[in-house]
Computed example of a mutant assay.
Amino acid sequence: MPPEKIDSLADDVKPLVLELLRQNSGLTARVDELLAQNKALLARIADLEAGHGKPPKTPDNSSLPPSHGQKGNVAEPTRAKKARKGRPGVARALAENPDATRDIYAERCTCGAALAEAGQELARAWDHVDLPPIKPITTRLNLFRSTCPCCKARVTAQPPADMPEGSPFGPGIKAAVAYLHGCQMVGFKRLTELCEGLFGLTLSQGAISNMLARMGQPFGAAAQQIAATVRSSEVIASDETSARVKGKTHWQWTFGCTTAIYHVIAPTRGKCVPTDFLAGARPKVWLSDRLPAQCTHADAHQFCLAHLIRDAQYAIDHGDTLFAPQFKAFLKMPARSGADGPISPTARLQRIGAALTANWIVCWTSSPPMSRAATCVPPSR
């Protein structure tokens, strides 16, 4: 039996016992650590097993972007393809209003005889399209002054309205710089090289920065007009997606109607963004996905059909062969049907409601509980 007290041990045994006790304490802590790690791994395995069997998320059945989709390998052809039937070739259509026309007449025959222009018929015609040499046009403005013969005041001429004093760059250069930087995402350094190589125009990065800064006020006024147009619409559609701004996650919001689309980048994905945009206005219908921040902004709300079609596709990939395919067909049903004219929402529901109901009853009465659960459509968000 072990001794009740260490002091009762012999002096030569006591250090050995103390060392063993220290090692036992360390082993106990290591065992506790391994038990905690084993518990975490068991929970991880349970999560993976719970998700086993679910269909993979693709751009067609989830919110994954199209760039994340994988294309399958093209199978090798088992036999030679049949030769395609010949058909008339298609060439570029001739311009309706060419800037210039050159008539080229035959001058001499191969035998050396001269040919008159009168009576010659058109044999072939084509358009030759090219760009003229692009170079900036520099206009020197000299303002003169004179002395008034009456009051002896010195009077200086006023500059023309289309060429004010200050920045030397005209509206054509400003428009090109704004388009290349804002729409084509050309950076300042590459933009200076592009202007030099393509236009023969020397620009510094500072000049580009000042140019864009001065254009902020007219662009801001136009943006406010677009926002007012969308805000006053009876039907507004919205959506948002993430974006990186100066190393931080922001969100790009779009609010659109039939005639205009307003775009804003905000540091939040919250409800405050559409609320601030509406500024007290309340449309009749709001169209968006099921993100709570985009709901309850109008008298009625229409869920985005593209998101619902994706959810139906996810249920189909999960094994639902009854309800989800009919639901997807209902969502993709066109608003017009040939000579029948426009189809009201009520008529669309009546047209497919019987098929949906019959298939749902069959699914519910004949399928086991696990198959019935597979018909539930998961949320998009």
Results as ranks from 00 to 15, higher is better:
1 M>D: 06
3 P>S: 14
7 D>C: 10
9 L>Y: 04
10 A>H: 10
10 A>I: 08
11 D>I: 11
14 K>G: 07
15 P>F: 04
16 L>P: 02
17 V>T: 07
17 V>F: 05
18 L>A: 07
19 E>I: 11
22 R>Q: 11
23 Q>Y: 06
25 S>R: 11
26 G>L: 09
29 A>G: 03
38 N>R: 05
45 I>P: 01
45 I>A: 13
47 D>G: 09
51 G>Y: 11
54 K>C: 06
58 T>Q: 02
62 S>Q: 08
62 S>R: 08
72 G>Y: 05
73 N>A: 13
74 V>F: 12
75 A>E: 08
77 P>I: 02
82 K>M: 11
84 R>H: 14
85 K>R: 15
85 K>F: 11
87 R>M: 12
92 R>F: 00
101 T>P: 01
103 D>T: 12
105 Y>A: 09
112 G>I: 10
113 A>Y: 09
118 A>S: 15
118 A>F: 15
127 D>C: 00
133 P>R: 15
135 K>T: 12
137 I>L: 09
137 I>K: 13
138 T>I: 15
142 N>H: 13
149 P>S: 12
150 C>F: 14
158 Q>C: 08
160 P>F: 10
166 G>L: 03
166 G>R: 05
171 P>D: 14
172 G>K: 10
172 G>W: 09
174 K>H: 14
184 Q>T: 06
186 V>I: 05
187 G>C: 04
188 F>Y: 09
189 K>W: 04
189 K>V: 07
195 C>S: 02
199 F>A: 10
199 F>Y: 12
203 L>N: 03
208 I>D: 00
210 N>Y: 03
212 L>E: 04
212 L>P: 02
216 G>D: 09
216 G>K: 13
225 Q>F: 06
231 R>E: 04
238 S>D: 10
243 A>P: 04
248 K>T: 11
248 K>D: 13
254 T>G: 11
256 G>M: 04
258 T>E: 13
262 Y>K: 03
267 P>M: 02
267 P>T: 03
268 T>C: 06
269 R>E: 05
269 R>V: 06
271 K>W: 03
278 L>H: 08
281 A>E: 10
281 A>Y: 05
286 W>R: 01
286 W>G: 01
293 A>V: 03
294 Q>Y: 07
294 Q>I: 05
296 T>A: 15
301 H>R: 05
305 L>F: 02
317 D>G: 02
318 H>N: 11
318 H>M: 11
320 D>L: 00
323 F>G: 02
330 F>M: 01
330 F>Q: 00
331 L>A: 02
333 M>C: 14
336 R>P: 06
336 R>W: 15
337 S>Q: 15
341 G>W: 11
343 I>Q: 14
344 S>D: 12
345 P>L: 09
348 R>N: 08
348 R>Y: 02
351 R>Q: 15
351 R>F: 15
352 I>Q: 15
353 G>F: 06
353 G>A: 06
355 A>L: 13
357 T>R: 12
358 A>Q: 12
363 C>S: 10
365 T>D: 13
366 S>A: 14
372 R>M: 04
375 T>F: 03
377 V>D: 01
377 V>R: 03
378 P>F: 03
378 P>H: 08
